[in-house]
C-alpha cells in the first residue's frame, strides 16, 4: 500500500447473505469504487487475507458468522479498513458488541436511502485514506507502542451522571493515576471541560433527562481527540445507534459497573485519546454525522453548544 495513487479507486467490500443486496450495491458503487463482494462472513475474511480494502459494509444476520464476529476478525486482519454495519434489525447486545468489539464507524439501517449510504461510504473512504496517510507518515506508531501508554495526569476523565456516587466510584476503580472530575449536569460538564484538561468523557445516555448525544456529537465535531464512553443502565438500541453515528462513542458499557471491565474500557479510551491527540489526521476516522435536528440541549442552556465549540482549554492545548 506504499504507492497509493490519489487517483486509484478506493476498495470497498460488501458482505450480505442476500445476493440481491450485493447486486444493488454493485449497481450503486461500481462506478465510484473498486467493489468486492462476499456472501458470508467466512468468505469475507478469506477475501480480506489477500485483498486489503478501505471500507467494509456488512450485514449483521448471516448464516455461520454474524456481521459483528466478522468485523472483529476483520479489524485484526485489516485494521485500517473502516467498518459499517448495514442491518435490518439488531438487538441491543449486537449493537453494543459492534461498538465495543467491532469499533464500527456507522450503523446503517435497512431499508437504506441510496444518497445517505453513498455519503456514509464516501466519508468512510475519506477517513480510511486519511488514516492510511497517517500510518504512512508515522509507520512506527502502532496501537501497542509505548509512546501511547497512558501517562498519569496527562488527561483527566470527566464523569457525567445524575447519580453523584458514580464519579467517586470510578475514581476508586481507576486508582490515583487518573484525575476524575464529576458533573451532574451539562453546564457543569462544560465548566469542567473549560477548567480542566480532559481526554475522556464517561457519560450516561441521559443527564437530567436530556439526551447527551448532541453534546457528545458537538464535542466530537469540534474536539475530535476527545473520547467518549457510555456507562448506563438505560441501554436501548435506538440511542446506542444514535450515539455511535452522531457521537462516535468509543465504548458502551452497562451498569452495574464491573471494575475490571470499566478499567479496561477507560484505559483503552485514554490510549485512544492520546493517539488522536498525537495525530490529528486520524480524526477523520471518528468523524460524526451532523445531528438531524437542532440539538434539544441548545434550548436548555443558552449558547451551551457555542461554548463547547470554543472551549478555551482546547484552544490552549491545541496551541501548546
Amino acid at each position: 500500500m506504499d504507492d497509493v495513487a490519489p487517483t486509484q479507486k478506493a476498495r470497498v467490500l460488501f458482505v450480505d447473505d442476500e445476493p440481491r443486496v450485493l447486486t444493488t450495491m454493485r449497481m450503486l458503487f461500481r462506478s465510484r469504487y473498486e467493489v468486492f463482494f462476499a456472501e458470508s462472513g467466512q468468505a469475507a475474511l478469506d477475501l480480506l487475507k489477500t485483498q486489503p480494502v478501505d471500507v467494509i459494509v456488512s450485514d449483521q444476520r448471516m448464516p455461520g458468522m454474524t456481521g459483528i464476529e466478522m468485523l472483529r476478525a476483520a479489524r485484526d486482519l485489516n485494521p485500517n479498513a473502516m467498518r459499517i454495519l448495514l442491518t435490518g434489525y439488531s438487538d441491543l447486545n449486537a449493537i453494543i458488541g459492534s461498538i465495543n468489539e467491532g469499533e464500527i464507524f456507522r450503523f446503517v439501517n435497512k431499508p437504506w436511502m441510496n444518497d445517505d449510504l453513498s455519503t456514509t461510504v464516501a466519508r468512510a473512504v475519506a477517513a480510511a485514506k486519511a488514516s492510511m496517510a497517517a500510518a504512512a507518515a508515522a509507520p512506527a506508531e502502532t496501537a501497542d507502542s509505548p509512546a501511547v501508554q497512558p501517562v498519569a495526569g496527562a488527561a483527566g476523565v470527566l464523569v457525567m451522571d445524575d447519580d453523584p456516587r458514580v464519579p467517586p466510584q470510578i475514581q476508586t476503580i481507576l486508582g490515583p493515576s487518573f484525575k476524575v472530575y464529576g458533573a451532574s449536569s451539562m453546564n457543569e460538564a462544560v465548566e469542567q471541560l473549560e477548567k480542566n484538561q480532559i481526554g475522556v468523557v464517561i457519560s450516561d445516555t441521559r443527564v437530567q433527562d436530556h439526551p447527551v448525544v448532541s453534546l457528545i456529537g458537538t464535542l466530537k465535531q469540534h474536539h475530535p481527540e476527545l473520547v467518549s464512553v457510555i456507562l448506563t443502565d438505560r441501554a436501548d438500541a435506538g440511542s446506542a445507534i444514535e450515539l455511535i453515528n452522531q457521537g462516535q462513542i468509543y465504548r458502551f458499557i452497562t451498569k452495574p459497573i464491573h471494575d475490571s471491565q470499566c478499567k479496561i474500557a477507560v484505559n483503552s479510551a485514554v490510549r485512544q485519546h492520546q493517539r488522536l491527540a498525537a495525530s490529528p489526521t486520524l480524526h477523520q476516522r471518528y468523524e460524526v454525522e451532523a445531528p438531524a435536528a437542532p440539538p434539544p440541549v441548545a434550548a436548555g442552556g443558552t449558547g451551551l453548544l457555542d461554548r463547547v465549540k470554543s472551549l478555551r482549554s482546547w484552544v490552549r492545548r491545541l496551541g501548546s
Binding site: R20, G88, L117
Partner: peptide, 9 residues
C-alpha cells in the same frame, strides 16, 4: 427490511 432495502434502492 432486507428485500425492502434492495427493492427501494
Amino acid at each position: 427490511n432486507t428485500p425492502l432495502g434492495y427493492a427501494r434502492s
